[in-house]
């Protein structure tokens, strides 16, 4: 099958080689061509690269996704655990292991690292802890997702339009100083104890940081860009889509980052106050049994989840906001 695309441009070594008509077998099915069509341009350095891209396509989607995930994990781990940091981290971990072991600190209050890791391993083997993590994550992503879906558009609209801002924003500015944990009692009365109440509390925690940061970033869009797009004829809708949002995108992703940390706080509070499963519940349970290693496992799991989500957001930013890099 020979596919034809009209108006494509192939750049080889940055020179325009051929445009307006390219015939290559299966060309249209190649993802990089499709991508190129969206971005109006297909830039490859050498003819060999074309072959590479073709091969890469044939190696299948799953493999490519795996490759992407690997590169993300590698980047996240290598960027955090740099040699410079390990020099600090390893002695700290050693202290944690040795001080309780030699009785310098109270072993019952601070169990050594190996004990905690062993407890972690046992908990994983019991499966119950995995269910708890899964449970917490479902609630967390439901709450955070809801917050993103509501707060980002609201922030964009209030950042864009002064009239809407004046009508809507003061309401949230009045409600936001109420600390989210203060909402717990009334939420329990409204929703009872369980999933809706926990999701709502997580939503509440991450909603305000996302809303206000998105709003601020959109409001501070460089007026020159707006003037320039308007003078070319942009409608307000196009301005929102092609100027306000792209210019604020980095800040929006970072606002989700603060939403993640606020959401995690609310996750723990919600599960401690009302729930029969989840990491917060495990923490509470461990307290009543005075099981310090179990508490520490719960805390470290939460810390790891937060770190991991932030790394994902950083990766998303680096992929979506490619244009920010300098020369």
């Amino acid at each position: 099958m020979v596919a034809t695309i009209k108006g494509g441009i192939i750049l080889i070594r940055n020179k325009t080689l051929a445009f307006f008509r390219i015939n290559i077998v299966h060309l249209l099915r190649l993802p990089f061509v499709r991508k190129a069509r969206n971005r109006d341009i297909l830039s490859i350095e050498t003819p060999e690269q074309l072959c590479c891209e073709v091969q890469e396509f044939h190696c299948g989607a799953i493999k490519r996704i795996l490759r992407e995930i690997t590169s993300f994990l590698k980047g996240a781990i290598l960027n955090t655990f740099t040699p410079a940091f390990l020099v600090i981290l390893v002695p700290l971990l050693l202290l944690w292991e040795l001080l309780p072991r030699f009785g310098i600190v109270n072993y019952a209050l601070i169990p050594s690292l190996s004990t905690v890791l062993l407890t972690f391993w046992e908990m994983l083997a019991q499966r119950q802890f995995l269910h708890d993590i899964g449970d917490s994550m479902v609630k967390f992503f439901a709450g955070l997702g809801l917050a993103i879906v509501v707060a980002v558009p609201l922030g964009v609209i209030t950042g864009w339009n002064v009239a809407i801002r004046k009508r809507i924003l003061p309401l949230f500015q009045m409600l936001s100083p109420i600390p989210p944990p203060a909402w717990v009692p009334i939420t329990i009365i409204f929703f009872g104890v369980g999933f809706p109440m926990q999701t709502f509390l997580i939503f509440l925690g991450s909603f305000y940081p996302i809303l206000f940061n998105t709003f601020g970033a959109v409001k501070d869009t460089e007026p020159r860009y707006l003037a320039s797009a308007r003078s070319f004829g942009a409608s307000e809708f196009t301005l929102i889509l092609r100027v306000y949002i792209p210019s604020a995108l980095g800040a929006i992703i970072m606002s989700i980052r603060s939403g993640v940390s606020a959401g995690l706080i609310m996750l723990v509070i919600a599960e401690m106050y009302g729930g029969s499963s989840g990491i917060g519940f495990v923490l509470n349970e461990a307290r009543s049994f005075f099981n310090v290693p179990r508490m520490m496992v719960g805390m470290m799991t939460l810390g790891f989840i937060g770190w991991f989500l932030v790394e994902i957001l950083k990766y998303a930013e680096s992929k979506l906001v490619v244009w920010k890099g300098g020369r």
Partner: peptide
């Protein structure tokens, strides 16, 4: 503003600014 939905310049002008005002999130093309 030009309009809410449809792209249409009010006037047939183009502007150039000292600080360029080209959109940094778009390529040259």
């Amino acid at each position: 503003a030009n309009s809410m939905w449809r792209n249409r310049p009010k006037h047939d002008i183009a502007m150039m600014f000292q600080d360029y005002a080209v959109f940094p999130w778009m390529t040259v093309f």
